[in-house]
């Protein structure tokens, strides 16, 4: 953990990684699958589909969730909700390194659950590419 209660990860985007993600999720856009099409559109290599944020930002989320300092009991948590917002003009391209910071957002109680937001912000070369909100639904211990 960094001194300011943030957790950081870096993720090297590769053509093979984008290709495997597209194959696993059924994403067929030529900019994501075809290096020649991506180059013809002005990119250095294939472009990651937006939902690839689930891969490149995950390291920071996992680092936060598994650090007891963050106060999330991972063994009692399930993924309750998810949102992403993307930059209108920055794309993540094979060859990029994505740096993500994660921090704990709002914590709210709903019945027997505590909903804990993990907020991520991802950048490539200091330029913002994506924010994520990963909501963990944590079963509360009896009496807590």
């Amino acid at each position: 953990m960094a001194a300011d209660n943030t957790w950081v990860s870096t993720f090297a985007v590769t053509r093979e990684g984008v290709s495997a993600f597209c194959a696993a999720t059924g994403t067929t856009h030529p900019l994501c699958r075809d290096p020649a099409a991506a180059r013809a559109a002005g990119f250095a290599d294939v472009v990651a589909p937006p939902l690839f944020a689930a891969a490149y930002a995950l390291g920071a989320v996992n680092a936060l969730q598994h650090d007891p300092v963050a106060g999330i009991d991972a063994a009692r948590a399930v993924h309750g909700a998810q949102s992403f917002r993307w930059s209108p003009d920055e794309r993540v391209v094979a060859g990029d390194v994505v740096e993500t910071t994660a921090r704990v957002g709002a914590r709210t109680r709903r019945g027997t659950l505590e909903l804990v937001e993990i907020l991520t912000s991802s950048r490539v070369r200091e330029r913002w590419v994506c924010d994520g909100r990963w909501t963990a639904a944590v079963r509360r211990e009896a009496g807590s």
Binding site: G26, H29, P49, P50, A54, Q82, S83, F84, W86, R133
Partner: peptide
């Protein structure tokens, strides 16, 4: 969620935000 994203946007790069 990725399946839903494939179906809501013909052009994936038109996605501005998604929540579920």
């Amino acid at each position: 969620l990725a399946q839903a994203a494939n179906l809501v946007a013909d052009d994936p790069f038109a996605l501005e935000a998604i929540a579920v």
